[in-house]
């Protein structure tokens, strides 16, 4: 807590965090287009500003100017409401992520500077991430378009399937650190090593599975059948245009950024580095660095990997990820017992 008043604290820590998340999401669009162009031997957006850096500003201005079109046969109220909620939910996930590292006098580290250090910690982003399919499905349904409805259905099927291994692998750090609080989980990693590395094996597998399931939750390749443009045109956003469409696009990037931040916090030690991290605020820089690295990996996968079919998706989730993550939960419980028993 920077300030004693939790509301003021949330305001002062939260607003810069929102600014950073939205900036990264905005420039993520530009960065991804250039990166994709580089992979596909094209040039990408290079005209607006030096190296095309202002392309995103031009796109945003274009979207703001467009008429707010709502199809006559759409469910008006839900159609309009559904475009706002995803962004709100995606950004709220960040509230519990601790961003700073504070060194005590005896050399031990403590995590700090979360917008809200909730007692239930990890359950908060998991619960809100689960709520995410709600407005997205609502957008697909209310558009009254068969492709967007199909996309919404796929989204729900994928979302509720991949949520199970996601929650189970998130329990691995919880069991190892002995707390649901993200502050405690990061503090434990600072003093005992990152969960992706230690305990050797289970931690790394849990990290990979959690990362994969966050890709599925954010509808990124290889788990992007909900918006498979070659099959269902454009997914839930077919009927949306103008700034509402822009919100959905920005939400995708914000959600990806948030998923990367959560993975970095749970398994890559959050703001911690194995060598001296420097002053406490450097923790923010390290966390952002790790998050941007995972963000980059997600787009690297997106432009070099193939999309899975619906049956392959379900097969992977239920026959592989769920049993393996159940095993990981048990293994980590055994590990805790053995380490405490020695």
């Amino acid at each position: 807590m920077i300030l004693d008043n939790p509301y003021l604290h949330a305001l002062i820590v939260g607003l810069p965090l929102l600014a950073v998340a939205l900036t990264v999401a905005g420039f993520g669009v530009f960065y991804e287009r250039r990166f994709a162009a580089w992979i596909q031997l094209r040039r990408g957006p290079v005209w607006v500003g030096p190296q095309g850096i202002f392309q995103i500003v031009a796109d945003a201005l274009k979207m703001f100017q467009k008429e707010d079109l709502v199809p006559a046969s759409a469910d008006q109220a839900i159609f309009k409401l559904a475009s706002w909620f995803p962004m709100f939910l995606a950004l709220s996930l960040l509230a519990v992520v601790p961003m700073g590292a504070v060194e005590a006098e005896d050399g031990s580290w403590t995590a700090a500077w979360a917008v809200s250090s909730l007692d239930v910690g990890i359950l908060w982003p998991l619960a809100l991430g689960g709520l995410m399919v709600f407005p997205l499905w609502a957008a697909g349904w209310s558009s009254n378009n068969k492709y967007s409805l199909l996309s919404g259905m796929r989204m729900v099927a994928q979302g509720i399937s991949y949520e199970i291994p996601m929650v189970l692998t998130a329990m691995v750090p919880v069991i190892l650190a002995g707390s649901l609080s993200l502050d405690d989980i990061v503090t434990y990693q600072m003093n005992h090593g990152w969960f992706a590395v230690w305990p050797p094996g289970p931690g790394l597998v849990a990290f990979v599975i959690f990362f994969l399931t966050s890709l599925a939750e954010a509808d990124r390749v290889p788990f992007d059948i909900p918006e498979a443009e070659s099959e269902i045109v454009g997914g839930i956003t077919i009927e949306y245009s103008g700034i509402r469409m822009g919100l959905f696009v920005l939400t995708e990037y914000a959600h990806t950024f948030v998923a990367a931040a959560l993975t970095a916090t749970l398994f890559l030690g959050g703001p911690h580095m194995p060598f001296s991290v420097g002053p406490a605020w450097m923790g923010v820089v390290w966390l952002l660095g790790k998050t941007l690295f995972l963000f980059f990996v997600i787009y690297w996968i997106r432009w070099t990997w193939l999309r899975y079919r619906a049956d392959q998706l379900m097969d992977l989730a239920w026959r592989w990820l769920v049993p393996v993550s159940l095993g990981l939960v048990m293994l980590s419980a055994v590990w805790v017992q053995l380490m405490e028993g020695k």
């Binding site: 007692d119 239930v120 619960a127 689960g130 399919v133």
Partner: peptide, 24 residues
């Protein structure tokens, strides 16, 4: 009761979404 609140969100979402799909 933040724990119960989180569990409420986590569990009822799945339930309500299933209900919604059945409804349609």
């Amino acid at each position: 009761a933040t724990f119960i609140a989180a569990i409420q969100l986590l569990l009822y979402t799945g339930g309500v979404i299933t209900l919604m799909l059945f409804g349609i």
